Simulated assay, not measured.
Amino acid sequence: MSIYVDYAATTPIDEEILKSMLNSADKFGNPSSIHRIGKEAKAFYEASRKNIAKRLNAHPDEIVFTGSATEANNMVIRGTADYYERPHIITTAVEHASVKETYQDFEDTCDVTYLSVDKDGRIDIDELKDALTEETKLVSIIMVNNETGTVQPMADIKEVLKDSGALLHIDAVQAFKQLPVDTETLNCDFLTLSGHKLHAPKGIGVLYVRRNTHLKRLITGGSQERERRAGTENTLYAYAMMKAVEKADENREENTKVLRSLKETLLKELEQQEVPFEVNGDVTTQTNHIVNLYFPWTTSEYLLTALDMAGIYASGGSACNAGTVQPSHVIEAMYNEDRARSSIRFSFGEQLTEDDMKYIAEKLKTIYTKLGKNGFI
């Protein structure tokens, strides 16, 4: 039996999306060419941009296609920080590596503030208020955490920033499939999405840039994407991204019910199996597609190996550490390093079943029992 519970790391390509891509492969022209084949490709490409903009309540000219959300996050941070002379920029201690490590690159040339989080993984709004200054140019907040599913208080964040001169950058990669994402409601200046978290192929992302917002470009050599990102447009992957965004938006409510049931079943079965565990964070302020669990009787590395041998594929945290098992910086920020070294992330897709959750709980019980019999607990 094989059970994949690492959907927050990546998702399988949706069969309908893949078939749609193959059926549209004849749109191979370069959108920058002026002949008919190029113009057809251009129209095809711009239709994808228009439809994504509609789902985000944005204008088509505010949508930039990128190679990934990591690239998009880098574009925002580097393109903003490089524009000012020693600006003040704010982020949190629990950001995705593409934000966290990029901010670290600017610690010598910018004044960087990292907001702390409580044991639920949420920032303190008063700390954000206190951190803001007249020199604050950018605030980066992950809307839904990729390791715990924690939802940040975006309405409160918007309220704090509305009268400041700071730009708001939202990493919505884990949010879009779970929650409505409306750029006007969020009142953000930048927002990023990733295709492969929505059952599109790897290698496509989206960056929303509010109209009249300056962003110094990183990639030069062409005038594509309204001179924001040079390079021949990836028309077919942009189309796949559009189909994925549409499908996620249309099926969000139905998918949420399935994911909620999966999460609740796993927790209930673990309790019934009497496997010692604790939830990292508060399930009431989390999405349903992720649950991060602390198992005080073992280590993440051992447990991931044991689960893998049982055909269960989970994660110790973010998938951005080149296949290594490192303690999650998110769990460290919420608790401590010891807890991070004994925590596992399970992330779900609507393809899974309640029987899958029961099987996972049974295998965890078996692992726990064997460790106890061998005197390791």
Rank of each mutant, 00 (worst) to 15 (best):
Y103P: 15
D120K: 13
A131T: 14
E127D: 15
T136L: 05
Q152P: 08
D126T: 15
E135F: 03
T113A: 11
I141P: 08
V112L: 01
N145D: 13
T150L: 07
T113M: 05
E134S: 13
T148M: 11
L128V: 06
E127N: 15
L138S: 01
R122F: 04
D118E: 01
T150K: 07
K129T: 11
T109W: 00
D118N: 14
D130G: 01
I125L: 07
D126M: 02
S116T: 07
N145C: 09
E127A: 15
L115R: 04
Y103T: 13
L132D: 06
E107D: 03
I125P: 10
Y114K: 14
K137F: 01
Q152H: 05
S116I: 00
T102V: 15
T150C: 05
T109Q: 03
N145T: 10
Y103M: 15
E134D: 15
A131E: 10
D130H: 06
K137W: 01
D108M: 02
V139E: 02
I142S: 14
L115N: 08
G149C: 06
E101Q: 12
Y103K: 13
A131M: 06
V144D: 09
Q104A: 12
D120W: 01
Y114C: 05
D124V: 00
V112D: 00
D118S: 05
V117C: 08
V112A: 00
T150R: 06
G121L: 10
D108H: 03
T102Y: 03
I142D: 09
E135T: 06
E127C: 12
T148S: 11
G121H: 04
S140E: 12
S116A: 05
T133Q: 04
V151G: 06
N145Q: 07
Y103N: 14
Y114M: 07
D111G: 01
D111P: 00
K119T: 14
T113K: 14
V139W: 07
F106A: 11
E135P: 00
K100W: 10
I123R: 03
D120V: 00
K137T: 00
Y114P: 06
A131P: 01
R122C: 10
V144H: 04
L115D: 09
V112P: 00
D105W: 02
V151L: 13
E147R: 01
T148P: 11
D118G: 12
I125D: 04
V144I: 11
M143D: 11
D118V: 02
S140Q: 13
E101P: 02
E147I: 10
I141V: 10
I141G: 08
D111T: 13
G121A: 07
E134P: 10
Q152S: 09
V144R: 02
N146L: 13
V117T: 10
V144W: 06
V117Y: 11
V117L: 09
F106Y: 15
M143F: 14
L128H: 08
V117A: 10
D118Q: 00
E101S: 09
L115A: 09
K129V: 07
K129E: 12
T102L: 06
D124E: 14
T109V: 14
I141Y: 10
N146I: 13
N146Y: 14
D130S: 12
I123G: 09
T109N: 08
K137C: 01
S140P: 09
